[in-house]
Design a protein around this nucleic acid. Sequence first.
DNA 1: GACCTGCTGCGGGGTG
Length: 743
Amino acid sequence: MTSSRPSSSDDSSFDLLHPSIQRWVWSKGWTSLRDAQERAIKPILEGQRDLIIAAATAAGKTEAAFLPILTRIANAGEESALAIYTSPLKALINDQWGRLEQLCESLEIPVIPWHGDISQSRKQRFLRHPRGVLLITPESLEAIFVRRGSEAPRLFAEVMYVVVDELHAFIGTERGKQMQSLLHRMEHAATKRIPRIGLSATLGDMNLAAAYLRPGSPSSVDLIVSKAGNQDLRVQVRGYLSPAVIEDPENDSEGEDRLLGAEYAIADHLYNVLRGSNNLVFPNSRKKVEFYTDALRRKCESDSVPVEFWPHHGCLSRSIREETEKALKAGDRPATAVCTTTLELGIDIGAVKTVAQIGPGPSVASIRQRLGRSGRRPGEPAILRSYNIEQSLTDRSSFSDRLRESLVQSIAMIRLLLRGWYEPPNAAGLHLSTLVQQILSVIAERGGAHAGPLYRLFVLEGPFGGLTQPEFGELLRGLGLKDLITQDRTGLLLLGQTGEQLVGSHDFYAAFTSEDEWQIVCQGQTIGTLPISSPIFVGMRLIFAGRRWLATSVEDEALIVCVVADPGGMPPSFGGSRASTHDVVRSEMRSVLATADQVGFLDQTANALLAEARRQYADLNLSSEIVLRSGEAISLFTWRGDPTNDALVLILRGLGIERVENEGIYLIVEKYGIDRLHDALTDIAELTDVDYMRLLTDVFNMRRSKWDWALPDSLLKQSFASLHLSFSGARTAARELVSGTRR
DNA sequence: GACCTGCTGCGGGGTG
């Protein structure tokens, strides 16, 4: 116990906390509350308005929210006051339960974790006396509505606050839309407005965050933004040149090693600079995580030094992931994780020295999030090492290779990062797939519902604005056609037979899809999974969990692959599609190529590659030419993001130009004359959004989200376009390209 | 040629 006591500038906020909570704070030896904690007390105690607390990871956001929340619950005495905390991860719920339990012990406030791994008996206990703090996932909340709909009003009646942790992880996603809908339904069941508190370390646009937390009334959201200390950042971008691919791979016995040459050179460098400290390596795919973990482990073994490199990705079993997390946290010996976005989220792994990024990284926002793990100790800089592979050029090299697209993208993204820019989340998505789920869920909750009240609940008053009444009717009729819902003589909507089946099944509660997976089993222990689409056969050698295996048996029905250790192997394919690049990134890439200014953070090879790319840019005259012809192919340099390029491709196909592909910084059109292309682009420059919608073909490929199959075609196109396409970008790009294709 | 997250109720059998 310390003699000094926490105090505030006006010395009053702390005094407002419940005496037992004040004692708890003293017992922790805190000499003062953190900025965010201090500032959150009054607004939360008033309990009228919504609040976002944005502060760095270690700044005590959880306490900022819960010191005043628990004060109010404790003051309510015997009444059944309740606060609900929601989180995107079970692991986070378990973490928070530990912290809150300790704080609540003396207050005699129960803290109840509720997710798929929690026993029925604990859930039953809560259901009998719903009071205290409930820690729950959105999926479990969904399950409560579906399975215990009639109890919802009783359960939620006394909820005083809802806390949404990791708010940034929800904004703009399917799951985030589901969460908004659940919060809205909770207030409807409780017949009162429930103040919402959002927590996050990495919110960029506060207006977007406020609009997410309280749709339709962002001005009722107060903001507490705790300024982060100005962190020193050190960056190096390295270039690697891969030898030219041999024309006849059949007669190239060293083909594989040649292709991997640059990757092994990167592994060597990582081995030399990362050993002896804690670091994170992000190679952008699970397959490459396997490759680098294996390569680095073998180097340690051949040098007879302890292995310091551990794999971490979503297809590895929980126990293997926990082993890696434990190695990072332990602190007694150095550990580096080779990982995917799994270690970008809020799991506590301590501070790391370096973040290594192999290839450009999926987005600037993501790199920024990853960097938040480095340089967390006072006086230590954050260190970013970027590794980039480019191919040796031949006379058949693509524009993408000639312009060194990958290296230039890394440079552009780091320049944007240094300027403080990153991609805003797409808040304009209609998420009609999730609306289908929510309609079925409310019908199950209430045992039937009428169309009018559903429209009011979801569209007029809820989070699915932007849908007209006729469109909503069309959607309901579509659900009827698929036997998801049916209507009785009074007009009441009920679940159809298919609807009953799907709502009753255990994978109804998540808003996102999941595929079947192979279980990879070694001596009765599951070490991880592979997507059902990846080819599996007996005798197959593979690298998995950073080690080498041989598949000895495959059980087709049970989806089990048994493996034993084996010296051979290649990393398996996990599938996936290309990441979407933003307009601003592509435009920054152009300015990296168009200017001659020195980039300060490049190594020698990267410098030479950039100089070469700039020469190509000048030789191709790309500062004024945006349409290049080579043989039968026409390249359209839009220098725009994928939502724009993809929209152009789909609209062009709708106009009959079928051989067109999005190549990244340009589109490539084959076998169509420049005149035909000119006419099509002229059309695109003049059409309206509604025309574009009509032109969209290839509807099959637009089914990406869980319930898209149940949407009528026109609504599917609308939902897809709102998430993935930019018509306004396509129109602007077409206007520019029209002049480039004029003869 | 990216990534990630989540899950009920019931019946059968064992234990106290």
